[in-house]
Simulated scan of single mutants.
Amino acid sequence: MIFSRGRKQDPVVEFWAWWPTIRPAVTDAISTGGFEPLTPQISKRVAAIHKDLTWEFSKGTDSRHALVVSPGGNPALRAVVARWGALAPAADPDWEFHTARQPDHDTLSATIEIAGAKLDLALLRFAFSRDEDSAAIDVVGHHPLFRKLPEPVRGQITFLALDWLLGEEGVELWIGSVDFSADEPAGARDPLDLAAAVDALREEHREPQWVVFSAEVRGRPVTGIAQRPLRSARWPRFDTHVAVVLPFAGAVAGLPSDEVAEALVAFEDGTLEAALHGNGELLAHETGGGRRTLHFYVDGTSSAGDDLTAAAAGWPGGKATVKRAHDPGLEAVAHLA
């Protein structure tokens, strides 16, 4: 008799197969408050996907209720959560599903208890300024009771308030430095003014924007372009860095002639782009020393990395090289952000 081991079940697929069996009880519990027996079951199913994921129920945006499973700011978990969200059922009048905490402006008018103090969040103010270089907004939070609270609590309140105001993804994408002050900072304004500024910045970047840069490295010119803002939350599924290096001849001070530059662009936009099949994106490239390095990020569970490697071999200007590494936090291009 031949015995075979069954395939290990995909915990994301299992979660969505299980959800309809517990959904009625969860919906009832939201009305009755009887969550206690359900919480361990949900936690177990989420932890099976990854032990460090967080989850919560909240008020929905378009539906009555929302289930949120979040990476909790950990870029290494974004691809996992993105897949969970991609397999979620379509929203309906009762339930919607999110991979990050959504804005909750109602909470900003509530009073919360923290560190033995009662804070009226309606008194919270933000001073903010735009950082043009990084397409982000730098923030300083203030509340009159910050004078009586230790610094870690001030920071906790500031970050919680930003999540409630902008949603987890909004903070990750559009907020730069975050500080907090016991004294009201110059230009402090209502939180909704900050939300409006973030909305305006998001609208400006609705279409992809590229920044051109040039530098000198060891006495040689280097040029390039990079998408902005260069933040991993924009591409949660693309967790693998694929660096494609294309050498070229006839360089002048290490840079390509017009003819070679046209050939590079044609190869990037044609052959390499076609190899992605929607499973990756070019985030930046650098040119200098007789070669162009293209920084692609791809879905590590797809064939995009292999397909890019095969496509790069067709570069007529010399022998292309390809290096691949798991890099959910975009560390390989952090110097270009």
Results as ranks from 00 to 15, higher is better:
residue 83 R to M: 01
residue 66 A to L: 14
residue 132 E to L: 04
residue 68 V to E: 08
residue 275 A to Q: 04
residue 44 K to W: 11
residue 154 R to K: 00
residue 30 I to D: 00
residue 83 R to F: 02
residue 316 P to Q: 12
residue 50 H to G: 14
residue 44 K to T: 13
residue 163 D to E: 10
residue 151 E to S: 12
residue 80 V to L: 08
residue 150 P to T: 04
residue 146 F to S: 03
residue 211 V to S: 09
residue 47 A to W: 02
residue 143 H to E: 00
residue 171 V to E: 05
residue 198 V to M: 08
residue 298 V to L: 09
residue 188 A to F: 13
residue 61 T to N: 02
residue 203 E to T: 10
residue 314 G to T: 09
residue 67 L to E: 12
residue 279 N to D: 07
residue 332 A to W: 15
residue 56 E to Q: 15
residue 155 G to E: 12
residue 271 T to Y: 06
residue 23 R to Y: 02
residue 125 R to I: 07
residue 93 P to N: 10
residue 171 V to L: 10
residue 85 G to I: 12
residue 51 K to M: 12
residue 150 P to L: 02
residue 261 A to R: 15
residue 130 R to K: 13
residue 323 K to C: 00
residue 225 I to C: 01
residue 97 F to S: 01
residue 117 A to K: 14
residue 328 P to G: 06
residue 306 D to V: 14
residue 288 G to E: 02
residue 277 H to A: 13
residue 44 K to F: 09
residue 192 L to D: 07
residue 295 H to K: 05
residue 145 L to P: 05
residue 132 E to G: 00
residue 141 G to I: 06
residue 68 V to W: 10
residue 299 D to F: 05
residue 308 L to M: 08
residue 282 L to R: 15
residue 150 P to I: 04
residue 148 K to N: 08
residue 120 D to E: 09
residue 263 A to W: 09
residue 274 A to R: 15
residue 243 A to G: 00
residue 197 A to R: 05
residue 245 V to K: 03
residue 61 T to P: 00
residue 217 V to T: 11
residue 130 R to G: 01
residue 317 G to W: 10
residue 295 H to I: 06
residue 328 P to M: 04
residue 117 A to I: 07
residue 276 L to S: 00
residue 225 I to M: 11
residue 27 T to I: 06
residue 68 V to M: 05
residue 228 R to H: 11
residue 125 R to E: 13
residue 180 F to L: 00
residue 49 I to P: 01
residue 330 L to C: 08
residue 156 Q to R: 06
residue 267 F to W: 15
residue 7 R to L: 11
residue 266 A to M: 04
residue 180 F to I: 00
residue 156 Q to I: 06
residue 291 R to Q: 03
residue 145 L to G: 07
residue 291 R to H: 07
residue 326 H to M: 09
residue 137 I to E: 01
residue 65 H to Y: 15
residue 294 L to P: 01
residue 331 E to T: 14
residue 336 L to S: 07
residue 77 L to W: 10
residue 55 W to N: 11
residue 158 T to H: 06
residue 180 F to D: 01
residue 300 G to E: 02
residue 62 D to T: 08
residue 243 A to Q: 11
residue 90 A to S: 10
residue 114 I to S: 07
residue 104 D to M: 08
residue 90 A to H: 08
residue 263 A to T: 13
residue 85 G to Y: 12
residue 262 E to R: 15
residue 192 L to I: 14
residue 79 A to K: 10
residue 149 L to C: 04
residue 251 A to I: 13
residue 156 Q to W: 05
residue 211 V to G: 01
residue 192 L to A: 14
residue 215 A to D: 05
residue 320 A to I: 02
residue 58 S to A: 11
residue 117 A to R: 14
residue 39 T to K: 02
residue 49 I to N: 01
residue 139 V to R: 03
residue 66 A to T: 10
residue 22 I to R: 06
